[in-house]
C-alpha cells in the first residue's frame, strides 16, 4: 500500500492508495455529509451529498466513490458545495412527505440531522406532496414510501449481507420506488427472511418496526461491522478490547 499525498482544504495530508476520498477526509476529522454511504456497504454514489471540488478546474466528484490519488487537490466546504448540498436536501424534502413532527424517526433521522447541520430552515421548492402508500403487510416491519429517499441501503444490505435480495428499485424519476419481490406486498415475500437488516440501515423513517409510534424508532448499525468482521476476518469476539482471531 503506497503512501500518497493529497491536499485537502489547502493542507497536505498523507493517505494510502485504494482509499476513497471520503475515507481520507473523514480520517482527518473533517465532517463530510453523506446519506447513501454506510460503512460496511458497497458504495452507490447516488445522493451526491459528499461531493467535493477536485483540482484547479473545481470539478465536482462524489467523495465516496472517488479513489484518492497522488497529488490531488480538493476542497470539501466551498461556498458552492454548501449551496449545492442544501439544494439537494431541500429537493429530498420537497419530493416526498417528510412531516418530521409526527415521524417515527423524529430526532434520530439522518436526513433530518443533515438538514439541521447545514442550517436548512425552509424549502424553496414546491412540495410535490405525492400520494404514497405505506406497506404494513409484513408481520414485523413497515415501509412508508412517504419518507424514502431512495438511498438503496436496504437494497444493498439485503443483497450483499443477508443474501436474500428481497429489495429492488423500480420506475424512474419521481415514480421511482423501492419494491419487495418484484413489487409484491412485503408480507407475501418468499425471499424475505425477516432479519430486519434493511430496517436497521435505513437512514430515515421509511423502514421501521411495526407498532412504532412518533419518535420512538431507534436504529443500530453495529451489527453490520460484527457480521462483516466475522465473515471476512473470522473475527468473532474481542478480548480486553482487542479482536480475537478465530473467535476464541
Amino acid at each position: 500500500m503506497a503512501v500518497i499525498t493529497v491536499t485537502i482544504n489547502d493542507e497536505l495530508v498523507s493517505g494510502r492508495t485504494g482509499q476513497s476520498l471520503l475515507e481520507l477526509v473523514r480520517e482527518r476529522g473533517i465532517d463530510l455529509p453523506t446519506l447513501c454511504h454506510l460503512d460496511g456497504l458497497e458504495e452507490r454514489g447516488g445522493c451526491r451529498l459528499c461531493m467535493v471540488e477536485v483540482g484547479a478546474t473545481n470539478r465536482l466528484a462524489a467523495a465516496c466513490v472517488t479513489p484518492a490519488q497522488e497529488g490531488m487537490v480538493i476542497y470539501t466546504h466551498s461556498e458552492r458545495l454548501v449551496r449545492y448540498r442544501r439544494m439537494i436536501l431541500e429537493l429530498l424534502f420537497a419530493e416526498r412527505n417528510h412531516v418530521c413532527a409526527v415521524c417515527v424517526m423524529n430526532g434520530r433521522c439522518e436526513l433530518q440531522r443533515e438538514a439541521y447541520t447545514i442550517g436548512m430552515d425552509h424549502v424553496r421548492y414546491d412540495y410535490l406532496t405525492p400520494d404514497l402508500p405505506m406497506d404494513a403487510s409484513h408481520e414485523r416491519f413497515v415501509i412508508d414510501h412517504n419518507r424514502c429517499i431512495l438511498c438503496t441501503r436496504c437494497v444493498r444490505v439485503c443483497d450483499s449481507v443477508e443474501g436474500a435480495h428481497t429489495w429492488d428499485v423500480m420506475g424512474r424519476g419521481v415514480n421511482c420506488r423501492v419494491i419487495t419481490d418484484l413489487h409484491q406486498p412485503w408480507g407475501s415475500s418468499r425471499s424475505c427472511t425477516s432479519c430486519g437488516k434493511c430496517v436497521q440501515v435505513c437512514p430515515t423513517g421509511a423502514l421501521h418496526a411495526k407498532g412504532s409510534s412518533v419518535a420512538e424508532m431507534v436504529k443500530h448499525h453495529d451489527f453490520l461491522q460484527w457480521i462483516l468482521d466475522g465473515r471476512e476476518k473470522k473475527q468473532w469476539a474481542t478480548r480486553n478490547g482487542d479482536p480475537v482471531e478465530g473467535g476464541r
Binding site: V102, M134, S212, S213, V214
Partner: peptide, 14 residues
C-alpha cells in the same frame, strides 16, 4: 387516512 393507527396518538396530538 392511509397512515397507521400506531402513529395516531402522535399525529392527533397535533
Amino acid at each position: 387516512v392511509g397512515r397507521s393507527f400506531w402513529e395516531m396518538p402522535g399525529i392527533t396530538a397535533r
